[in-house]
Nucleic acid binder design. Structure first.
Length: 645
DNA sequence: ATAGGGTTAG
């Protein structure tokens, strides 16, 4: 904790880096200050051509200016060279002059040269200007169309991109594989994607690697991993981007195991990971809380210390693996930080129980002049709600529109309901639900239900649970909770009713499962599971540990009805909850003193929470448990959540 | 001359 505080105070702020420059299409007349000494036009042209090919931008610009005064023009290929040079140096002002020069003097430049100008506008993010130029072009070929389509895809104007494809076909211009690989990115529905895919197969472009990687990526983005895999498996040749597309696809679709398998296959196939691969692998580590693998990947990230996206992924990995010291050290060393870096760190601190530090960091963020976004504020409100900072929460909530121009959204309201509810202001929370400008959804009611659990308000809990089940009839946890509430009040008819509904809807209770990484191997434990090879030893050890804990006042609590967030305890197997097995296995197999890190699929129950606190104290051992919502750092008999989750 | 892959919450 102290380390984190120190790290927060030592942070250095990076200056904002946006310096968007304006650049218009207006053609300015030649400047009047031309050198009056007459020069031979062919020597002017020679100079210009030489400078262009030498990529000597300043001299080329001077030469061009002289040519303009004397009405001399070069050939298109030379101008193309010059434009490439401007692009490479991001020389917007110079590009503007070249553009004016090329289009002035009543000449009609060749299509390929205008295409290069078009592309230049797109690369400098001047979409509107590009469209004007495109509209003025007397002749537009595949390249012109593809450039525009690609530009609209970059701007996420999917509809416009698809519309252009139709205009293009109407004008009789046939799309090529460049066009298809670009336009595929504009698919936001499966129907459109399937239609385009048909067309691609029909014209025989499916064999192109670019088209295939675009297909894989977009199928994965639309959640159709099987189709993505089909395209991938059929490929005779693959390149790094294709591998990255499929690995990224699985990493982003929570089939993280498969992403890691593919990463291994990729390496076996002889490809070296690049920034994109590493980002996806880190995301996979994040999902599975694989700190050891993630730390290994960190070594490879070091050579890409200028890559913001990759470093953000690294930062998130450490946060989500509960290793805040590492996260802070990455954060403070990052060369460049953007909203995502800040938001990740703020949420990371908050989820790990460091609410105060999260809010402090938010203050520093304001100083750094990086503007918070929607997600940043969610993190800030999360920090407030999990620390019981009602007043701070209200202040941030009320001022977000005024200070940051962000309208409070559903998630912000849910955080506020959570905040009020946890603080015991259940009626105020209900009031806010009625006042908010959105229809409450399952997340909203779950926030209220969480508060009912903390404050043991059975009636309101039943009401909230019913609302959740109306909106999300597939949520096993809520059925179990409802049934447990009824059981606790001995309303057996209602219990039977809930069970009946569950059966009728085919809903089965998700079994509790915990994972722990030991020697780069993942060990999984289910409730009362006996499949682990060392289970007998683990059970023996667990019994022994429980006896020792009882000696210091531990009383296994089997009546955590409202506290029980996963509904495992009615299984008569509370002492075999998956996290207990994982903790014991960690004690047995990790080197003494090494933090035990566990990830689980359901929320931790009250009994296991007490068990973990006492174990941490008795064994002098740090234990970190990540549940689907937040983190618990157990140390010296306490938990970072302050018994408030 | 035009094309494909990676980051934050719930």
């Amino acid at each position: 904790m102290n380390m984190i505080l120190k790290a927060v105070s030592k942070l250095k702020w990076t200056k904002p880096s946006s310096q968007a420059r304006q650049f218009s299409l207006t053609i300015t007349p030649p400047v009047a200050s031309c050198n009056t000494i007459t020069r031979n036009s062919s020597s002017l042209l020679d100079d210009f051509t030489r400078f262009c090919y030498q990529r000597d931008l300043p001299r080329a610009m001077k030469a061009m200016h002289a040519m303009q005064c004397h009405g001399v023009r070069a050939d298109s290929v030379t101008y193309a060279e010059l434009i490439k040079c401007c692009l490479a140096r991001h020389a917007v002002e110079e590009a503007k002059l070249v553009h004016n020069h090329v289009l002035s003097g009543g000449f009609e430049p060749e299509t390929f040269l205008v295409n290069i100008l078009l592309n230049m506008h797109v690369k400098f993010s001047l979409l509107e200007e590009a469209q004007v130029l495109f509209d003025q072009m007397p002749e537009r070929n595949v390249v012109s169309w593809t450039t525009m389509i690609s530009a609209y895809c970059d701007a996420k104007m999917n509809d416009k991109a698809l519309e252009l494809l139709i205009f293009m076909l109407r004008e009789g211009v046939r799309p090529n594989m460049f066009t298809y690989s670009a336009v595929l990115r504009a698919c936001d529905s499966l129907i459109i994607l399937r239609q385009l895919h048909c067309g691609i197969i029909k014209v025989g472009f499916e064999s192109d690697v670019f088209v295939r990687s675009a297909l894989i990526d977009i199928y994965a983005k639309l959640g159709e991993l099987r189709n993505a895999e089909c395209v991938f498996n059929e490929m005779p040749t693959r390149d790094l981007v294709v591998w990255n597309s499929i690995i990224g696809g699985f990493a982003q679709n929570s089939d993280v195991d498969e992403a890691l398998n593919l990463y291994k296959r990729m390496k076996r196939a002889g490809f070296a990971a690049d920034q994109s691969t590493l980002t996806s692998v880190l995301r996979a580590c994040t999902g599975l809380a694989l700190l050891e693998l993630g730390t290994q990947v960190h070594v490879h990230v070091l050579k890409y210390d200028h890559d913001l996206i990759l470093n953000n992924a690294l930062l998130d990995m450490y946060c989500k693996c509960g290793s805040l010291e590492d996260a802070m050290s990455v954060f403070s060393r990052m060369i460049q930080k953007d909203v995502i870096s800040w938001s990740t760190m703020i949420s990371g601190l908050a989820q790990n129980g460091y609410s105060q530090e999260a809010l402090k960091l938010f203050e520093s963020m304001k100083v750094s002049r990086i503007k918070p976004n929607y997600i940043t504020i969610v993190g800030v409100l999360f920090a407030c709600s999990h620390a019981g900072f009602v007043e701070d929460g209200w202040n941030h909530f009320k001022s977000m529109k005024k200070f940051y121009g962000i309208d409070p959204g559903r998630e912000h309201y849910s955080c506020m309901i959570d905040l009020l509810g946890r603080a015991g202001k259940l009626q105020e929370a209900v009031k806010l639900i009625h006042e908010m400008p959105y229809e409450p959804d399952a997340v909203t009611w779950r926030a209220l239900l969480g508060a009912c659990k903390v404050h043991r308000n059975t009636d309101l809990a039943i009401c909230a649970a019913k609302k959740i089940l109306n909106l999300d009839p597939q949520d096993p946890g809520t059925y179990i909770l409802l049934s447990n509430i009824y059981a606790n009040s001995q309303k057996w008819d209602e219990v039977a009713e809930v069970r009946k509904t569950m059966r009728a809807r085919g809903i089965t209770k998700e079994p509790g499962c915990s994972w722990i990484e030991v020697n780069k191997q993942i060990h999984a434990f289910n409730v009362a599971d006996s499949s682990h090879p060392q289970i007998d030893k683990i059970n023996k050890h667990l019994k022994h540990l429980i006896q020792k804990l009882v000696g210091v006042g531990y009383a296994p609590d089997t009546n955590y009805v409202l506290q029980d967030l996963e509904g495992e305890q009615k299984e008569d197997s509370i002492q075999y909850h998956s996290e207990k097995l994982a903790i014991v296995f960690g004690l047995m197999s990790l080197t003494q003193g090494k933090t035990i890190r566990i990830r689980k699929n359901l929320r931790i129950c009250g009994d296991c929470h007490t068990f973990a606190k006492l174990t941490a104290k008795m064994e002098n051992q740090t234990i970190v448990i990540r549940d689907p919502i937040r983190y618990h750092h157990f140390q010296d008999g306490n938990c970072s959540c302050g018994d408030y989750w």
